[in-house]
Design a protein around this nucleic acid. Structure first.
Lengths: 134, 134
DNA sequence: GTACGTAGTACCCAAAAGGATACTGTAAAA
DNA sequence: TTTTACAGTATCCTTTTGGGTACTACGTAC
């Protein structure tokens, strides 16, 4: 039973939530999808949007997304190489999901200016946006 | 930079998608939230819904959800012990997110009867539901 | 008197995820 | 002539995650 999460299904009988999360699982997949949702990007363009990712990790995550069929990879046989990543039609169907995730993040997750911690504010105690800019 | 994913924020500047995923990250959180969304459950009730989870893991995931403020834990000082887990008001705000995840899972992820693999069907090639019941 | 159900802990171990660093080849730019 | 950009690989290592097993306390049922 020590299988990678992505291969496990029978543990979550009939749970479509976990089924979906399986495809979003991976440290950079969320951000990658978020950016590609807004348009095709080349490898290094994407890399510049993710300051802390290493080449190895970015490649790995992209390959997994490609294997899932959510992202397409197009290689132009030129020198220097040109490789473009884009959402597939299937990937596009994730839009409402990404939207929902983004909306919740915007509404309930706050990052301190130092960028160290996530904070959740409950309904009433919603921190004013100004507090973030101080 | 080798920090647990949950503590990393500066790697994902302004990405609310990752911010949200941070809280859903963990092998059993998705299913747990899915079930608690439908009502309060005791520890062992939840355990029975997740055939493969171990006590240790269930406890761990619940504690993390509690720490995030998404789930509440109520202990009744009786013997044998009675502990109830429920969504907090904040946790409830995740409903549209869970809904979106569940909807996508229902529409695009297919599990073979053997429960071994996940399959994605693209728009047109949508497998008939009957195929699952054969 | 033994077993069962409740809700856990403690301890140890394997697997997976993620990260650091160095390396590739070509062409154009400096 | 050296450097830069491109899009990666390869190798090694650490951290994190998740799982296995055994153990606790208490009261009730058999």
């Amino acid at each position: 039973m020590s299988l990678p999460r992505a291969k496990l299904v029978k543990n979550f009988p009939g749970c479509p939530v976990e089924a979906t999360l399986t495809y979003l699982d991976g440290k950079w997949k969320g951000v990658i999808l978020f950016h590609l949702m807004q348009g095709t990007l080349r490898f290094n363009e994407l890399r510049r949007k993710l300051p802390a990712v290493t080449q190895r990790m970015l490649t790995k995550q992209l390959r997994e997304l490609e294997e899932s069929g959510l992202v397409s990879r197009t290689v132009y046989p030129v020198v220097p190489p040109r490789v473009e990543y884009a959402m597939t039609p299937l990937g596009m169907t994730l839009e409402p999901v990404i939207q929902a995730l983004a909306a919740w993040g915007d509404d309930y997750v706050f990052c301190s200016p130092e960028g160290r911690e996530l904070r959740l504010a409950s309904d009433g105690l919603r921190a004013p946006i100004a507090a973030l800019e101080a």
